[in-house]
Design a protein around this nucleic acid. Sequence first.
DNA 1: ATCACCCCGTTTCCGGTCGT
DNA 2: ACGACCGGAAACGGGGTGAT
Length: 366
Amino acid sequence: MRQQNLRVVNPELKVAPKKKEERPKALEQTDFFPELRYMGSKRRLLPWIHEILATLDFETALDPFSGSNSVSYLIKAMDRRVVSSDFLNLSATLGKALIENSSVHLDGPAMKRLLAEPANTHHFIEETFSGVFYTPEDLKFLDRVSCNIRQLDDSAQQALAMGALMRSCVKRQPRGVFTISGDLSKYDDGRRDLRLSIEEHFFEQVKVFNEAVFANGRRNKAGREDVFKVGTSGADLVYLDPPYVPRADDNCYIKRYHFLEGLSCYWQGLDIDFSTKVRKIPKRFTPFSYRREAVEAFERLFQHFKKQKIVLSYSSNGYPDLDQLTEILKKTKKDVRVFKRDHTYHFGTHSKVKRASVEEYLIVGQ
DNA sequence: ATCACCCCGTTTCCGGTCGT
DNA sequence: ACGACCGGAAACGGGGTGAT
């Protein structure tokens, strides 16, 4: 405890607690959300998104680009029914653990089974990623737990354990992306997360995921659907956070998170490209990644959700630009409003390099 | 209360190939 | 020639923490 805290202060005079009381309950719950270091994550924007969602009348929300599931988590915390989906299995897994699951935890018996030495151990991860990521002990541990996860009876427990395992892997990496490999000692700045083994992380992350589980009195769902195949019946709002075409770059999530996507299904049915240094899996197609197809993709997207209120998350970095997007949205929605907010990246790159200041948008159409 | 030091993010850059 | 695409990696300052 700090010295200053020992000073006697009249609690009535303190201002800070008053502020705390004013913070919405839903946002308090989002403090428990286990963030991945995920590209495009809206976690820091959750208070702003909450503010705008709170003005809208809806009972059931779709989140078909769920990603890290942070916005689904927020909407669940706002006591609405949530249907979360993504075309990545890692996102669907996080959704099953934190959105669909309301009550299941990883208890003692489950942990015992997860950590047991399996009868017939597979060595796929150890054999494939030796010298690429992690230590041999870490890789052996990943093989062991991966095998044991599939032996659990409860699918929510499986998802929770996989979520904890994925977050352990992310924390053990010096950067949030799986594009750097080999000798990563130059990135070692002494931080605690790099000193812990994946096994040590796993124990911590199981606790974190257990504490993140909550119920909101609704039957929430999480799945892995293409956005154009997501069912819309019964939903009155859709939150859309599609990948966007960057100005001069790509937005491929597989290239950054291939390891987590593979891990989430133990690379079942996935082809590994051994010509790549980091053992990548094939990129998955989405029209939102291509300049040629993005405009048409948005037209189809808005058409697909023509009966729902649309809340579209977007940034000034993207193509097509805000004006084009609002014009497209006006084809299916009478009332289109744009909320803007400056987004300063807390971390990141190249302050010497000139770049357009980024504005985040929420475009609401109803 | 101040300040040095530690932690750590994630977009953007770079150099290359491919397709037209 | 040109832009799209791809694999891979760098950047550097904000914010937290603990010692003083």
